[in-house]
Amino acid sequence: MTQRTDTPPAWDERTQLITFLDYARETARAKCEGVSAEDARKAPLPDSPLMTMCGLISHLRWVEHYWIQVMFLGEELAGPLTEASDDDPDPEMRTAIDIPLPRLLAEYQDQSDRYRHLLSGHDLDATAERAISDGRHVDLRWVILHLIEETSRHNGHLDIVRELVDGRTGV
């Protein structure tokens, strides 16, 4: 596990980007510390039945898979993302209800460590193998920035869900 800090050890662009991505990842993990197994599976927002702590961590894991392995590296979809449809656009959130939060967190940590190493071998200007919906090929810099945004946004969701299921705030 990396140390949770938003202050990079060096001021080059790559180090700053990776530091902020790691900080957002560690914040997501910290928001889950000490939550009960039952509370991790609760969906306290009536109009968002998939919005659970388990679902959010699973979503973060699979979003990284999608942007790094599928879009940037050009690999095929894997895991629950292969089941996505118009009727079930977020199967990674639905299926997470059956997976213990410690396992989801461990998988997310292992993947984060693997991606940190993998991305270190690519230039920030390297372009994605697959095009986004408008036909453009984003670069690795954009992918990392997008993951920072995505993870940080869902940290807000984790804040709300955690407060509603057991009253814990902060982190």
Rank of each mutant, 00 (worst) to 15 (best):
H154Y: 07
F72L: 15
R61Y: 14
I97P: 03
Y66V: 04
R94P: 04
A84V: 13
N155Q: 05
V63G: 08
W62I: 02
R29W: 04
G34W: 03
T95P: 03
L73R: 12
R41S: 09
R141A: 10
P46H: 10
A30W: 14
H65R: 12
R25F: 06
D22W: 06
L118Q: 13
D6Y: 12
W11Y: 15
Y108R: 09
E13S: 13
S112R: 05
F20H: 10
R14F: 05
S133T: 15
G170L: 03
W11K: 07
A131R: 14
R94D: 10
Q111H: 11
Q16P: 04
H137Y: 12
W142F: 10
L104S: 00
T27H: 09
T15I: 08
N155L: 04
A106R: 09
R153E: 11
E150P: 01
H65Q: 08
G74Y: 11
S112A: 15
T15G: 05
L140G: 01
I57E: 00
R14I: 09
D98S: 11
W62Q: 05
R41M: 04
G170S: 15
L164F: 06
S152L: 08
E150D: 14
V138N: 15
V143A: 14
A126D: 12
Q111M: 13
V138Q: 09
E83Y: 09
D39P: 04
G167P: 00
L147S: 06
H154W: 08
H122F: 12
C54S: 10
